[in-house]
């Protein structure tokens, strides 16, 4: 028999979570369909370390891949940032439409950077959430104690361009920080806010999707190319299917989570037209900076703009 390939995959998702269940089911199917030639071994719950550590271990070959937040693979494909542009997608429909058209291009970009993408699923939109005061405009935001993840320099630049000075804290201190008033404003996805218990300290949410993020299952290109093409196809097909399911489920969960937040008495603040315009102006400036610094392909930006206006006009008809 041809020697079996064991693909060691690390992830931060804990064992038993939705992601893990679906990935394990996919791995089982792949093992069957390849008659045991391709096996997966998962290391969940962050036991192999954070994103940087996992990537290091991929580089030395201990791991063959990982299920990681898309942002951690930016180096391989800076164009991924197109999805995390600020205030670019107004609702789920818009991002779904855009992804339909450019996911494959983004995947190709990653492959060029050395990572074969065998699954992509959304974590969802992050929203601004605050504990003390209802916020609807930038002036109000500037008066808050805004949390920023330690060492997140891009996010700091964005906030700076909004005129906001932020308070850096590690994730582990955020809940206590909200409780004690060390900070009072955070950005997080609804699922995340519930899982991390932050929602217990939150009273207001700005009803405006800030930015979108994805989780990506990737295998190192070198390891992937050592697998027989027929088996590669099986891996692709099965995992893509699994990730479509995860994507659908996360979409549903995020929607439900927003309802849970509302049911917990959290108030959704809708900015007025003029306020929205102001947010958008600032966001556009921050986004433009990314294009100007050359990290994001202007052609891709144009393409997405076109897709969005296509979608919006079709919706208005």
């Amino acid at each position: 028999t041809a020697q079996a390939k064991t693909l060691k995959i690390a992830t931060l998702s804990p064992e038993g979570s939705d992601w893990m269940q679906k990935m394990r089911a996919g791995a089982k199917e792949i093992k069957q369909k390849t008659s045991g030639r391709v096996k997966f071994k998962f290391y969940p719950g962050g036991v192999m370390g954070d994103d940087s550590a996992v990537l290091r271990k991929i580089r030395i070959g201990q791991l063959k891949g990982g299920a990681l937040p898309g942002g951690s693979l930016l180096k391989a494909n800076p164009n991924y940032q197109i999805y995390s542009l600020l205030l670019s997608y107004k609702n789920q429909g818009e991002i779904d439409y855009v992804r339909q058209h450019i996911d494959s291009e983004i995947k190709k970009g990653f492959e060029k950077g050395g990572f074969v993408i065998i699954g992509m699923a959304e974590s969802g939109f992050a929203y601004a959430m605050s504990s003390k005061q209802a916020i609807s405009n930038i002036t109000q935001l500037r008066q808050q104690k805004v949390w920023i993840p330690t060492n997140d320099i891009n996010f700091q630049k964005i906030l700076k361009s909004f005129g906001v000075t932020a308070i850096p804290l590690p994730y582990g201190d955020v809940l206590a920080g909200l409780q004690t008033g060390l900070i009072n404003t955070v950005a997080m996805s609804p699922i995340g806010a519930i899982a991390l218990q932050w929602y217990t300290q939150i009273n207001y949410i700005i009803d405006m999707p800030l930015l979108y993020s994805l989780g990506i299952l990737t295998i190192d290109k070198k390891s992937f190319s050592k697998i027989k093409p027929a088996d590669q196809k099986i891996i692709m097909d099965v995992m893509n299917k699994a990730f479509k399911k995860i994507n659908a489920q996360n979409k549903k969960h995020n929607k439900e989570s927003l309802e849970v937040l509302a049911a917990n008495g959290i108030e959704f603040i809708k900015p007025s037209e003029t306020e929205l315009k102001e947010w958008q102006e600032y966001a556009d400036k921050a986004n433009q900076k990314m294009v100007d610094t050359g990290t994001l392909d202007p052609k891709l930006v144009e393409k997405v703009k076109k897709l969005l206006s296509e979608y919006r006009s079709s919706k208005h008809k």
């Binding site: 104690k145 330690t150 060492n151 700091q156 000075t165 932020a166 850096p168 804290l169």
Partner: peptide, 14 residues
């Protein structure tokens, strides 16, 4: 910095 100036060093924790 946090308590008096409402800010912090972004790389402090790292």
């Amino acid at each position: 910095l946090r308590n008096i100036f409402d800010t912090g060093i972004i790389w402090g924790d790292s």
